[in-house]
Structures are given as C-alpha cells and as structure tokens.
Design a protein around this nucleic acid. Structure first.
Lengths: 215, 215
DNA sequence: GAATTTTGATTGACAGACCAGTCAAAATCT
DNA sequence: AGATTTTGACTGGTCTGTCAATCAAAATTC
C-alpha cells in the first residue's frame, strides 16, 4: 500500500546502523543491570530492544564484541561527563574538585541501570584483560586529574597530607556510595550520598568544603 | 593389605561429609576467583577439588545451593574474623576501631581469592534476593558496631561530625582498597592499603590515629 | 580373625535444556 | 531492480542434573 499517513505514523522498520547499534547497547545495559552478566543472553538483549536475536550478530558479530562495545560506551560516557563538568568549572582547585564530585552525582551517570551494569562488568572482569584494558585507560586519566587537583588544593590552601592518598579516599568514597545504593546494603538516597561525599571532602579541606558542598 | 604405613600415606578415598563439603566450597572460591561467575562450572569446580563432577550434586544437590553455601561460608568467615579481633581489643573505642581496621587486613581475609570471589558474587547478585539476604545480615551487624564505636570515639574524644557518615566513609575506604587491589586499577600493595585506611581514620580522629596506626 | 554383608561415597556416561552463531528467505528501502 | 536490513529456524557445543554401576570401609556373621 502507498498510504502516506500509515508510513509516517509507524516507526521506520529500517534504521541507520549507528541508531541500531546504540539501541542494542542500551538494551545490553538494561539487561546486565536487570539479570546480571551470567544471565545476559543475546535473545534477552534483543527482546529488550524489541528486535530479533539475529540482528545482534548482524550488527556486532559476536556477543563478546557487543559486551566490549557496551563497556567502552559506558566508559566514554563517564569520561565525557566529568570532563564537561571540569571544563565548565573555574580555575581554582576547589571549584574543580567540586565539579568532579557533582559530575559523579549527575543523573545521567548516577542511576541504577548504569551503576549495576558497571558492577556486572567488574564482577566478571577478573582474568579478562580485554575488559580491564578498555576501562582502565579512562580511570587512569581520572585519577591523574583528581590527584593533581588535590595536590594544588593542598599547596594553595595550606593543607597537609599525601595528595595521592587523599585523592584515593575521595574516589573510593564516591565509588562506595554508588555500590551502597545499588546493592542497598545500607539503604540511602542520592541526597545522603552527596552529604557523605562532601563530608569526606570537608574533612580533608575544611576551609573549602562543608557537608553540603562548597564552603 | 593391612600395611598401616600405606594407609597413612595415601589419602582416604572416602571422607566425611563435612570434609568433602568444605573441600568443594574452597574449590568453588578458587574457581570463582580465577574464572569469574559466568565461567564457573560444576565440572571445573570438581576438577579444582580433584573430584568428579557427580560428587558436587551429591553433596549440594544443585549448583545454586553450592554457590549459596559458598557465599554463606565467606560471610561467616568474615564475621568471625572481625568479631575475634574486636573481642581481643580493649574497652576503649580507639582500640576497638583499630581492631576492626586490622581485622580487614588479616591475611585470611585480605587475599586475592577471597576478595575476587566476593566481587564475583556482588556482580551477579542483582535481582537475586537469595544472595543479598544471606550476606546482608552480617553486613548489618558490622555497620552497627562500626557506627557505635565511632559514636563513642566522637563523644569521648571531643570530636564533631556524624558518626554514621564517618563510619560509612571508613567502611567504604576499606572496601575500596580491596577493590583496587584485586582489579589493579591503581596498583598498590597491602602496606599502601593499610596506610590509606589509617590516613582516613587519622583525618577523622587525629588525636587517636596516625597514618601508621594508633597514635 | 577371616569371610561376608551392608552402607554410603564416588564415578562417569547420559539426557534434557539452553545458548551463540549461521544462513537462507523475507521484508524494506532507494 | 538492486542493496541492505531483518527474521527465525537450525546447528553444534556446553552445561546442569540424573542415575546405575562401582568401590572402599564399616558392620556383621561364622
């Protein structure tokens, strides 16, 4: 039939390569979060995306590649997010640390499906160098940034202590509240997470931070 | 043959139920750590234990039950360890916090196979209430203890701050250095982990702790 | 004390289920 | 019409759980 209205109403059956790939990556994240790594099957990913099983292999060739690309996407999404926050921040180390902390609480990053998918990957990454390599590079640049900011804040703000260890504790606290939130071992919300993170920052840099944010 | 020497040298083919179960649980931990949750098969567990595949089902009925018992074992081992350290500590809150921190660095707990197995479980625990329930109970008593100790240390030591948040940050720092050590995102050894944890404690309680332990 | 029976752990082959990857045919777009 | 995407049945392989047979030790009998 050549009814133009029907054609416009129905979503196009064929979509661009990039759109389909992104759709399948999002479905993979959802499936990982909902069912875990071990129960994530290609059929389930396809069903979540509303597509057929064969399409996954058509666009990604193997399950391994789909998962690797999904991890890469998560990694890039995370890196892009904090780098955007950092560029928008002023030149002072306090403002930059504030930016990094807010970045990790951004709703695009700090939501259950994203965090659970991360955890599913970490749980399975042992002995799989491919996963570690992909995600490790971004981690390293993040750590370097955080350590540099802490070092400048210590120097300019008249604090003492090891910038590497302080940067590490702040990073571990951020990662830790994520884990708490998704595993619900100690149930609390984003507001309490934020307060915990800033309490940590305020303990190291009391003249620049308070439990509620920048002093 | 009735040669006593031969009997003592060769391991007995039949062993008690409890011994075999423990042997299989240890093999499960090793396999989880080495290959991850998704690649942990009953055949691989049996091979690690030097036994046949059928024995696993004989002793544990299902794979699910084997994994649940393994998680329970890890959980109990952890709880027993810190409770032992805590009982050996004096009555002061500083000594008790010191005991809890040293407990988490005990070689029985803080070794790759144990930590990797924990991570494999957490990665797969989403949407599986059974795992969360088993391990969650012990976590809760640990948190309660830690919060109580921090509350007393704040009160008696003349500190300020929220005991719940401070206890949380110390716990997250301990868990975080474990994760760092097994994922090797930021490679460092146990000595550096210990220094990081005590740096954290020293920041909250500077008159009682230093970067190297109790002040 | 030797021979025999009983008990219960142990093995490995097998069946049923599930999954990743393939591919020919169908549908859709240009 | 030709090119490209999409489908779903099919295949080969792997895993879990079952089970009949085996075997060593303990119990019992002679």
């Amino acid at each position: 039939m050549t009814d133009p209205a029907a054609k416009l109403d129905a979503p196009p059956r064929k979509m661009s390569r990039e759109t389909r790939r992104q759709q399948l990556i999002e479905a993979t994240i959802e499936t990982l979060a909902l069912r875990g790594y071990a129960s994530t099957t290609l059929t389930e990913v396809a069903r979540t995306a509303g597509l057929s099983h064969g399409l996954v292999n058509f666009h990604f060739e193997t399950k391994e590649k789909l998962l690797a690309e999904t991890l890469l996407f998560l990694s890039e999404e995370y890196r892009l997010n904090w780098q955007t926050y950092l560029q928008a921040a002023g030149p002072t180390p306090a403002a930059q640390l504030h930016a990094l902390l807010r970045a990790d609480l951004d709703p695009a990053i700090c939501r259950p499906s994203r965090l659970s998918a991360w955890l599913a990957f970490w749980g399975e990454a042992q002995g799989r160098p491919m996963y570690q390599a992909r995600a490790g590079v971004n981690d390293e640049t993040y750590n370097t940034q955080m350590e540099g900011i802490c070092a400048r804040l210590i120097a300019e703000g008249g604090y003492t202590g090891s910038p590497i260890r302080i940067a590490r504790i702040i990073r571990l606290t951020t990662e830790g509240v994520w884990l708490d939130m998704i595993t619900m071992r100690a149930p609390y919300d984003v507001a309490e997470s934020q307060a915990t993170i800033y309490t940590c920052a305020a303990t190291f840099f009391p003249r620049h931070f308070g439990p509620d944010g920048l002093a």
